[in-house]
Amino acid sequence: MNTTVPKNLVMLARMLERADRSAAAVDAQQYRDVVEHLSEALQSGLPASMLEAVLQASPATSELYENLQYRHAGLCRSPLEPALEAELSARAAIDAARRSAFQPKH
């Protein structure tokens, strides 16, 4: 394996994390370039322990990895409990809005 891949992966993960957290506008083409190169690095057959360490350290990279794997694994890295709670809350809010929309106004 090419020994520069892990260094590049870490560097790209840090760049994506900074871009995602930036309060200033980020150049769209630079962002796409970082995502493209990071996507290639994530799909380069890294050892599982190295990949897991990078994904744990970088939420933005973890989300990108999950998106890349979605076709095969769904939301494999997202905690199920918060997603379920968010869906239930959204349904309750929608139901409440529907009920109030159909109540006669006095």
Rank of each mutant, 00 (worst) to 15 (best):
I94E: 10
A92F: 08
A90W: 03
A97I: 04
A73H: 15
G74W: 01
L88D: 01
S78P: 06
P79G: 14
L88V: 05
A90Q: 11
A86H: 02
A73C: 12
A83T: 03
A93Y: 00
A90G: 05
A93G: 06
G74Q: 04
A90L: 08
N67H: 12
G74M: 01
R98E: 11
A96C: 08
E63V: 10
N67Y: 05
G74S: 09
S78A: 09
E63S: 10
Y65P: 08
L84P: 00
L68Q: 05
Y65D: 14
Q69V: 03
A83P: 03
A83V: 13
E66Q: 13
A97E: 14
S78C: 10
L88N: 00
A96I: 10
E63K: 13
A96K: 09
E66S: 06
S89W: 00
S78M: 03
H72T: 13
A92G: 02
L64N: 03
C76E: 10
L80Q: 00
A86E: 02
P82N: 11
L64M: 06
P79N: 11
E85Q: 02
A96T: 05
R98W: 14
A83G: 12
L80Y: 01
R99P: 04
A96M: 12
A83M: 12
S78L: 07
R99K: 12
Y65A: 13
I94N: 12
L64V: 14
S89L: 03
E63C: 06
E87P: 00
